[in-house]
Amino acid sequence: MSDEIKVDLELDVRKLLCPMPMVRVSQNIGKVPVGGVIRAVATDPGSLADIPSWARTTGNEVIKTERNDGEFVFYVKRVK
């Protein structure tokens, strides 16, 4: 069963390289309410490690990661 994740903010970080994808996520996390979700689309393979690390250091959560066609999609939940 795949229940749809409610996305509060779409974030296009395609073509950006380190450190900008994670910087953009961090700059926008305050725009969603606590419990809200950002859907960020990246093309930098480094962000596969970076964004989950960022989530752990800031106490937020990557609830789902998808890969399709050279794009990486992160569902980042604001925890606090």
Binding site: C18, P19, M22, V23, V25, S26, Q27, W54, T57, T58
Partner: peptide, 12 residues
């Protein structure tokens, strides 16, 4: 500056 930016984005 990459490290500084990354650290600041990580709430440091």
């Amino acid at each position: 500056y990459v490290i500084a930016t990354g650290a600041a984005a990580s709430n440091m």
